[in-house]
Design a protein around this nucleic acid. Sequence first.
DNA 1: CTCGGACGTGAAGTCGACTTGAGGTCAAGG
DNA 2: CCTTGACCTCAAGTCGACTTCACGTCCGAG
Lengths: 155, 155
Amino acid sequence: MELLTIGQVSARSGVAPSALRYYEQQGLVTATRTSGGARRFPRSVLRRLAFVRAAQNVGLSLTEIRAALDTLPGERPPTAADWARLSRGWRDRLDAQIAALTQLRDGLDSCIGCGCLSLDRCALSNPGDVASREGSGARWLSPLLRRVPPTSNAG
Amino acid sequence: MELLTIGQVSARSGVAPSALRYYEQQGLVTATRTSGGARRFPRSVLRRLAFVRAAQNVGLSLTEIRAALDTLPGERPPTAADWARLSRGWRDRLDAQIAALTQLRDGLDSCIGCGCLSLDRCALSNPGDVASREGSGARWLSPLLRRVPPTSNAG
DNA sequence: CTCGGACGTGAAGTCGACTTGAGGTCAAGG
DNA sequence: CCTTGACCTCAAGTCGACTTCACGTCCGAG
């Protein structure tokens, strides 16, 4: 069994068929077609999906993930080293996210006592001390802590 | 100057007028009206907005924030202790978020070497070891690390 | 009296990552 | 032959937190 149906890929990866079709549309995965038009995925799609999943957890958008995947060789199958290279940059991202959250928590600790919540001075409502520098932008938490895909039924 | 116009509130809080109208609609803030129909906000709205902002940074949805705000007394103006009470529960949330991210990062560290990215075993693509337990749900990172409001122009 | 600017409203649009729905095809089994 | 189930496509819907738009109003200055 060399090629997988969309149902098999879905079952093995946990990614919904509709999401797989969407991913194909977005160029994140590719599939050949049977004479009848049904998708057939190579086994390697599972690793690709794992990468997508991991990248999402780190906070990358599908666009960014696509860009990363596009740097894979293409002729030869990607090696472990390829995957490692792609995910190396994530550490910084995670470190930044953790730092931002930690700062927020520490701000919380110091704020709980006073209940100040001053728009200007409180580390909670204005973390990173970035506020009111210029009129235009970049207040509050930078877009470091971004969405992680909503896990539909774990609410 | 006891009451503030929407423009003044916006300028002092960094919250766009459209957002302020939206917040009023959602019951997050209240405003009286002039004879002409223009909103007039009490100064206390600034503290409320700071609270909203902080709660968003911690990852609460506006619905949750509204629920929290609804527990405020209402007759008497909220005290520092009130605000502190509301934000006390956030620490756990932040701790959980930090823990999840840290776990993810540590998984990354151990994965970068091998580049495995196995759907089943890799801590990166399958953090928390929750996977493949049951067929239905709750794989991947739980919805702990959720959206932080998109900071419009800080991209 | 007119103009500009700040404000009002309700409806519709935006973004990301999908899901849902309607309607159709294909292969296997009874 | 007919059904069932897995698959297909394309369009539209969903969710959250807003923004944008089109159009109308109020107020003070000139």
